[in-house]
Simulated assay, not measured.
Amino acid sequence: MTADLPIASADASSAADRPRVAVVHGTLRVPPTYFTIQHAVPLADRFDFTFFALATDVAEGASPFPVVDALGLHGRPFREREFLLPLVLGRLASAVEYFDPALVHQHFGTWSLPARRSVRRLRVPLVATLHGSDVFTSSYTGRDPRYRWHRANLAGVYAEADRILCVSRFLADAAVAAGAPPERVEVHHQGIDTDFLTPADPGASADRGPGPSATSTGGPPRVVFVGRLAAYKGVPDLVEASSALRARGVEHELVLVGDGPLRAELDALSEREQHVGVTGSLDRVGVREQLRAAHVVALPSTPREAAGLVLLEAQACGVPVVAYDGGGKPEMLRPGATGLLATQGDAADLAVRLEELLTLPAADHETMGRAAREFVVAERSLAVSAERLGEQYRSLLG
């Protein structure tokens, strides 16, 4: 249920003894942003959740919880609606206050004013999760009013949040360096759905999905990238590494899943280079099938990548990974056991690490894939992450 107006407080009898938690975003689009809702589902028997945002675009049935949209105007393009967000800051704060939560959880620091305003008036705890882009965007200098706004909001989080959760140790260190009080900063690694993201059934037909050998049940080993087709995600480095491997006779396919500013250039490349495929954006099932079809999943992204959840998603599917060693990416695998790290920004070293996995004996590859799945289930599953989030809530609620 999505409401364009503040919803009435829930019936106390329906919520039983579950404390109300207001989960607040600047914008909330589902898909692709499933993770905040997914983390609430395992806790729904202990907390009464409602989601709030300045503007939302939530697919029908994508949220089992009420979602409050302060702006409305759903018939207009989302990009156009984003320009109007400053007009409804007060309205969102009022909606949160009307819900009367026992705790407010703000995701991303860059639009935190409504959440901070509501907790001041309600005198309840504020949890803020920082995801990376908020911390680094707010570090940009200059007079651009957007960055000044983001810096002010992030400074407000540092000053007012009772608990600041960061999605990696790397990001926690960056937040403290930027002014977050270390005694209120904790690492909370986001979890992924290991019930949905599973290895392919050994008895199922080997449908490789879109790609150079889409109609084949075999084909060369496949390197898969999932993410925005942009330079900051390391796509040019991955293409360079793939070309170097082909030049020295290492047979493989490179499949790029996603969309972005490099799409046209990569489509043209796939016309010239038969081993390269570009699928465009896929739904969750399509992404899962690409991960399952991969021999290795690569993420050679910027050193400011705070986490890189696709590395966890791949490992949950029993697929080893290769990533650059900058940012929070090393925390998303067990180097040497579930995947390999290449030197940040070094396409030649990336090629070496990819070759190691592409030429790994089948039994060793299977062992690494099994270890990858075990690592994610034990340490980075949605169930584990949600339980740790619930512990954070309980510690603040007493």
Rank of each mutant, 00 (worst) to 15 (best):
S112M: 11
L126H: 02
L87R: 15
D173V: 04
A161R: 02
H188V: 07
V127C: 08
V127Y: 02
R148S: 06
P101Q: 12
P182W: 09
L130C: 12
H105P: 02
P86W: 10
V157S: 02
Q106G: 07
R151I: 06
H107S: 11
A178P: 00
P145V: 10
E160Q: 11
G179Q: 05
S112L: 10
F170W: 09
H131T: 06
A175E: 01
A93V: 03
S118Q: 05
S139V: 00
R169Q: 15
R116Y: 07
V104P: 00
R81P: 01
V135Q: 03
R121Y: 11
L126A: 05
T141V: 13
R123H: 15
A102L: 03
R116S: 07
P86H: 12
S118G: 07
R91F: 06
P145Y: 08
R116K: 11
A152W: 14
R146F: 09
A174S: 12
D173R: 07
V157D: 01
A180W: 02
V187N: 04
V124W: 04
S139P: 00
D162F: 07
V187D: 02
S168C: 10
N153P: 04
S168W: 00
A152E: 14
V104T: 03
H107K: 14
E97S: 09
A177Y: 01
L87D: 13
A128Q: 08
L103V: 08
R146V: 07
Q106I: 07
L103W: 00
V88H: 08
G179M: 02
V157A: 01
V96E: 03
R169L: 14
L103Y: 05
S94N: 14
L92A: 08
